[in-house]
Design a protein around this nucleic acid. Structure first.
Length: 211
DNA sequence: ACCCAGGTGGCCC
DNA sequence: GGGCCACATGGG
């Protein structure tokens, strides 16, 4: 595992994995990105920004219909419109419209609260905690478990198990978590998409990708 | 005409 | 408690 991370560190420089100007922007993006790609999400985020909707109070009083129209191109727009609105309403109601007020609570408390919200499961909750809150929670995305299982480093399809495993190998630090996550996902994407790169794969000797 | 993309929730057995 | 399925759009 250390060998894998070491090799990755030497190969990739992942700057700005989650580009955003505010924690709230990360939270909204975390819901919008589900089952889609950043290419679809980025312009939608910009549109929300132009309309002044990357603001908790504004978002909370915007109609679902209007939100649906704006975010349509991210897919799942009806659910996601409801969800980002409900998220905003929750922040207004219980956290003085301040994401930090939610995110800075004790880690498990904040995580459980996030997961109570519709559309926020384990992975999204952890992504929000890490990238919006700067809290030490490793995001055990499918890409990560895929890399670990295909390298034979750790085989499990259970989210918490994979998360615990990776966290046990890393210094409990938000930047370490964020960086390692970005590196692993980047590797997974490279390998899935452009086969030729496999020859120059930094962890070639660790990998046995046959598919 | 497929398949994938930085998931979640609900229903079924 | 694991295994499907809907959710919807854009790009290869």
């Amino acid at each position: 595992m250390n060998e894998l991370l070491e090799a990755l560190r030497c190969t990739y420089v992942v700057a700005d994995w989650w580009p955003a100007e505010s924690p709230y922007e990360v939270m909204v993006g975390a819901v919008l990105i589900q089952r889609t790609n950043w290419q679809n999400v980025a312009p939608v985020i910009e549109e929300l920004r132009c309309r002044g909707l990357l603001d908790v109070d504004r978002m909370a009083i915007t109609s679902v219909n209007e939100l649906e129209a704006i975010i349509r191109r991210v897919g799942f727009f009806r659910q996601k419109a409801m969800r980002i609105k409900a998220l905003a309403e929750h922040l207004v109601r219980y956290h003085c419209s301040d994401p930090a007020h939610l995110l800075n609570q004790e880690l498990e408390v904040a995580r459980n609260e996030l997961m109570q919200l519709n559309g926020i499961g384990q992975e999204t909750a952890d992504a929000i905690l890490l990238f919006a809150g700067g809290r030490p929670r490793f995001v055990a995305a499918v890409y990560v478990s895929r890399i670990l299982s295909r390298t034979g480093i750790f085989v499990s399809s259970d989210y918490s198990e994979v998360q615990d495993f990776v966290e046990s190998w890393l210094v409990r630090d938000r930047d370490v978590y964020a960086r390692s996550y970005a590196l692993l996902v980047q590797l997974a994407k490279d390998r899935c998409r452009s086969r030729p790169r496999c020859q120059g794969c930094p962890v070639r000797h660790l990998c046995s990708f046959s598919s």
